[in-house]
Amino acid sequence: MKESVRIFRFAVIGTLNALITAFVIWLMMDELSYDYIPANITAYVVAQIHNFIWSKYWIFPIENKKNNIWKQMLFFCSAFGLAYSAQFLFLVTLVE
């Protein structure tokens, strides 16, 4: 696959992730009256699940079927946990 196509796909999914996150936060806080913490956690989880699926099958498709889905999910969840922890601490610091 050409790298320009991959970069375009990456940009599309990244933009969709930002829109999904913003929409879920808006929906939960403005329409459903949740506090910012559960809204943020839910939005981040929904967007990252979306990101994992699209990245696996559209941005970085792997021809080698030996790659274990559980290993990929474990690696993704570890990266997700680290990234979300940093983002969450930053959010709480700014809000509180």
Score class of each variant (00 low, 15 high):
residue 5 V to F: 08
residue 33 S to E: 14
residue 37 I to L: 15
residue 38 P to A: 04
residue 95 V to F: 11
residue 77 C to Y: 05
residue 5 V to I: 13
residue 25 I to K: 04
residue 76 F to I: 01
residue 86 A to G: 12
residue 58 W to I: 15
residue 50 H to A: 11
residue 39 A to E: 09
residue 57 Y to L: 15
residue 81 G to R: 03
residue 34 Y to N: 09
residue 3 E to K: 10
residue 34 Y to A: 11
residue 47 A to T: 05
residue 85 S to Q: 08
residue 2 K to A: 09
residue 25 I to M: 11
residue 52 F to H: 13
residue 26 W to T: 09
residue 67 N to V: 15
residue 60 F to V: 11
residue 45 V to D: 07
residue 86 A to R: 03
residue 23 F to R: 03
residue 10 F to P: 01
residue 29 M to D: 00
residue 59 I to R: 10
residue 65 K to L: 12
residue 28 M to C: 08
residue 92 V to L: 10
residue 88 F to K: 08
residue 11 A to R: 02
residue 52 F to Q: 11
residue 69 I to Q: 01
residue 36 Y to C: 08
residue 69 I to H: 02
residue 4 S to C: 05
residue 28 M to H: 01
residue 24 V to N: 03
residue 25 I to Q: 08
residue 45 V to L: 13
residue 31 E to Y: 06
residue 71 K to Y: 04
residue 13 I to A: 11
residue 72 Q to K: 04
residue 68 N to K: 02
residue 21 T to I: 03
residue 15 T to L: 14
residue 41 I to L: 10
residue 60 F to I: 11
residue 60 F to G: 11
residue 93 T to S: 15
residue 50 H to G: 10
residue 65 K to E: 15
residue 79 A to W: 02
residue 68 N to G: 00
residue 70 W to N: 02
residue 53 I to R: 13
residue 61 P to I: 07
residue 3 E to P: 06
residue 39 A to H: 07
residue 85 S to P: 01
residue 87 Q to A: 15
residue 95 V to R: 14
residue 6 R to S: 08
residue 26 W to C: 02
residue 88 F to S: 09
residue 92 V to R: 10
residue 27 L to P: 02
residue 42 T to L: 15
residue 28 M to Q: 03
residue 75 F to V: 07
residue 69 I to Y: 02
residue 25 I to D: 01
residue 66 K to W: 06
residue 80 F to N: 06
residue 57 Y to R: 14
residue 31 E to D: 08
residue 93 T to Y: 15
residue 92 V to W: 10
residue 73 M to R: 06
residue 49 I to P: 05
residue 78 S to L: 10
residue 48 Q to C: 13
residue 63 E to F: 09
residue 48 Q to A: 14
residue 24 V to Y: 05
residue 21 T to Y: 10
residue 40 N to W: 07
residue 27 L to I: 03
residue 57 Y to I: 14
residue 68 N to C: 01
residue 77 C to Q: 07
residue 56 K to F: 12
residue 84 Y to H: 14
residue 13 I to H: 01
residue 21 T to H: 15
residue 25 I to T: 07
residue 89 L to K: 05
residue 72 Q to A: 08
residue 83 A to W: 03
residue 55 S to K: 04
residue 13 I to W: 05
residue 91 L to A: 05
residue 79 A to R: 01
residue 23 F to A: 14
residue 2 K to L: 11
residue 85 S to N: 09
residue 32 L to Y: 03
